[in-house]
Computed example of a mutant assay.
Amino acid sequence: MHRLIVVNGHPDPRQERFCAALTQAYVRGGKTGGWDASSVSVGELALSSLQCLAEGDQPDAAAAAMLSEIEQADRLALVFPLWFDKPPAPLTTLFSRVAPRKAHIVVTMDMPAFAYRSILRGPERSPMLAVPGIEPEEPVLIGCVSSISLEQRRDWLETLREYGERSRFGSAVVPSRVQAFADMIDRTVAQLWA
């Protein structure tokens, strides 16, 4: 059975965080799709573990176990919040020790997603996807995350479950209807914005 690992990159691992819920929805979908799917949470690493990684020292047992799970995954997905236009430092610190590979990226942000999506289509890549060693596949941008309704949150959870379910080994991630609609709106707004 192929292994799918979904990384919750939020430094706060509490289950009430939206990134944690998105991560678990992706894992549920992966299991439905026939994967041996599970998650790891960067926020569960102690500060001393992260400092050890940042200084280039030997990883402690917790960091080594998380790195091993990530390395053994056949397919990888990352869910993280955008902080000051880039991924959280603990996530980039952990992935500085991961061999280069492709991953499906899901980014939550307070700004409207279309503003960042237009940057991704331009000649310069945004630092928001700059996770060391990761080549992003089909980035999903969830904008205005602090103000979206409960119904919109449920829609996003269903979208992430669908992404997990459709994560077939060796095939690209297929966007859901919600994501396809978001892309259409983003393209329209970007054209009007220019």
Score class of each variant (00 low, 15 high):
residue 3 R to S: 11
residue 3 R to G: 07
residue 5 I to P: 08
residue 6 V to K: 00
residue 7 V to Q: 09
residue 8 N to S: 06
residue 9 G to N: 05
residue 12 D to T: 07
residue 13 P to H: 03
residue 14 R to D: 13
residue 15 Q to A: 15
residue 15 Q to M: 13
residue 17 R to W: 00
residue 19 C to Q: 08
residue 21 A to V: 04
residue 21 A to F: 00
residue 23 T to H: 02
residue 26 Y to H: 08
residue 26 Y to M: 14
residue 28 R to I: 00
residue 29 G to M: 06
residue 29 G to D: 11
residue 30 G to H: 01
residue 32 T to R: 05
residue 33 G to D: 06
residue 35 W to Q: 12
residue 37 A to M: 03
residue 40 V to S: 05
residue 41 S to Q: 13
residue 41 S to Y: 02
residue 42 V to D: 12
residue 43 G to W: 02
residue 44 E to F: 00
residue 45 L to F: 02
residue 46 A to V: 04
residue 46 A to S: 10
residue 52 C to H: 05
residue 54 A to I: 05
residue 55 E to Y: 01
residue 55 E to F: 00
residue 55 E to R: 09
residue 58 Q to H: 09
residue 59 P to W: 01
residue 59 P to V: 04
residue 60 D to N: 07
residue 60 D to Q: 03
residue 61 A to V: 14
residue 61 A to D: 15
residue 63 A to C: 06
residue 63 A to R: 01
residue 64 A to R: 08
residue 65 A to N: 06
residue 66 M to A: 01
residue 69 E to P: 01
residue 69 E to Y: 02
residue 71 E to N: 09
residue 71 E to Y: 00
residue 75 R to Q: 14
residue 77 A to C: 10
residue 78 L to Y: 05
residue 79 V to R: 04
residue 81 P to S: 03
residue 82 L to E: 15
residue 84 F to L: 14
residue 85 D to M: 07
residue 85 D to V: 14
residue 86 K to W: 03
residue 88 P to L: 04
residue 88 P to S: 06
residue 88 P to C: 02
residue 89 A to P: 03
residue 90 P to M: 04
residue 90 P to C: 03
residue 92 T to Y: 04
residue 93 T to V: 10
residue 95 F to A: 03
residue 96 S to P: 04
residue 98 V to E: 14
residue 99 A to C: 07
residue 101 R to T: 08
residue 102 K to T: 14
residue 104 H to E: 13
residue 111 M to T: 15
residue 111 M to F: 06
residue 115 A to H: 10
residue 117 R to A: 12
residue 118 S to M: 13
residue 118 S to L: 11
residue 118 S to D: 12
residue 121 R to P: 02
residue 122 G to V: 03
residue 123 P to V: 06
residue 129 L to G: 09
residue 129 L to T: 12
residue 131 V to T: 09
residue 131 V to K: 04
residue 132 P to S: 07
residue 133 G to N: 06
residue 134 I to A: 02
residue 134 I to V: 13
residue 139 P to T: 07
residue 140 V to N: 08
residue 141 L to Q: 11
residue 142 I to M: 09
residue 144 C to R: 15
residue 144 C to L: 15
residue 145 V to E: 14
residue 146 S to D: 14
residue 147 S to Q: 11
residue 147 S to T: 15
residue 147 S to R: 14
residue 151 E to L: 07
residue 153 R to C: 03
residue 153 R to L: 01
residue 156 W to C: 02
residue 156 W to Q: 11
residue 158 E to Y: 00
residue 158 E to M: 06
residue 160 L to G: 00
residue 160 L to V: 08
residue 162 E to K: 10
residue 162 E to M: 07
residue 163 Y to R: 12
residue 164 G to A: 04
residue 164 G to L: 03
residue 165 E to G: 00
residue 166 R to H: 10
residue 167 S to Q: 07
residue 168 R to N: 10
residue 168 R to E: 15
residue 169 F to D: 12
residue 172 A to P: 12
residue 172 A to R: 12
residue 172 A to C: 08
residue 172 A to T: 12
residue 173 V to I: 15
residue 174 V to G: 06
residue 176 S to K: 09
residue 177 R to F: 01
residue 181 F to T: 11
residue 182 A to Y: 07
residue 182 A to N: 14
residue 183 D to W: 01
residue 184 M to N: 08
residue 185 I to F: 06
residue 186 D to L: 00
residue 187 R to V: 11
residue 190 A to F: 01
residue 193 W to N: 14
